[in-house]
Design a protein around this nucleic acid. Structure first.
Lengths: 158, 158
DNA sequence: GGCATGAGTAAAGTTGCTTGACTACCGTAC
DNA sequence: GTACGGTAGTCAAGCAACTTTACTCATGCC
């Protein structure tokens, strides 16, 4: 996925080049993603697949319009509505017309959808706790702080 | 994709809960991924699509067996061979039988494949330089250091 | 009212995968 | 030396998660 490597390795150099930040970001991202899916399945939300997680991106779909969710997840509105249709069929959300403007719809989490949202939060916290055991709480706090700064700093331009 | 949110927002709390580390990891990962693809297209490698990038994951496919690449990228051998087939058709790699063991094949980058690999490295370095401009070199170095520690620490168990 | 705008929908096509079944090659055991 | 088990790679069918194109409909603005 993320590639930040030399495809050709110099046969004379014993040590390969050090991994760049792109490669380093891939692992933790995928760990969270996989633990999230596995954790949801363990907790009884076994009808959710990876694609559904896109919809629950921070800060969640509650009261959002499908098109805004699509833009946030960087997919077409049709793709988003396809996924929302599945989540609705599975009982996680409903789509209701916005009473103030009949052109729009608004996504609302059902009880099951809210339960899934809380489970997701729990699972990320578990991963964080695991990392704190490995690196110590101070380093994880520092990592979170730096990532937050990076997010804020690039939020305006991207 | 990464979800680390509450799906339901407490109507009484004015401020939403702070984003967890899962949500914070998503942005930089996707930024690298998108800049990578855009940068490759700009540099003339416009026949590469996102899925191809999985193959170039650190430390790259050179002299690797398809099955090992598949395991590294966490996909089936058929999926990997499908992508390798495309890359071969596009002139980025060749697959040759391992002379020492005819059961295996080995992936070799063509000249074009090597050029793409170098371009990828360049692009990640550009992103790093951009982040250094925003946060300062010290913070980016710290971020890279922490990510490296996290990668090393979880490498054994995952 | 007429019309432009923008949200949602419907249908068809594409792609990047998975699953299942098969073949080829090697190492070991009789 | 041939039978057998294990593993790498291949072929084919099917499917999910999209994209593209073309609509319908509600609203706001003249």
């Amino acid at each position: 996925m993320l590639s930040s490597d030399l495809t050709v390795v110099d046969a004379n150099s014993a040590t390969p080049p050090p991994p760049l930040i792109g490669a380093l970001l891939r692992m933790p991202f995928e760990v969270v993603r996989e633990r999230m899916l596995a954790g949801l399945h363990e907790r009884g939300f076994s009808d959710l697949v990876a694609a559904h997680l896109d919809i629950f991106q921070y800060p969640g779909p509650e009261n959002q319009r499908p098109l805004d969710l699509a833009r946030h997840a960087r997919m077409s509105k049709q793709a988003m509505n396809y996924l929302l249709g599945e989540l609705e069929r599975l009982g996680y959300i409903t789509r209701l017309r916005d009473p103030d403007d009949q052109r729009f719809k608004r996504v609302h989490a059902t009880e099951r959808g809210q339960a899934a949202g809380h489970a997701m939060r729990e699972i990320v916290l578990e991963v964080e706790a695991d990392w704190e055991q490995r690196l110590g709480p101070a380093k994880v706090a520092k990592l979170r702080d730096l990532l937050k700064q990076l997010n804020v700093s690039t939020a305006q331009t991207v």
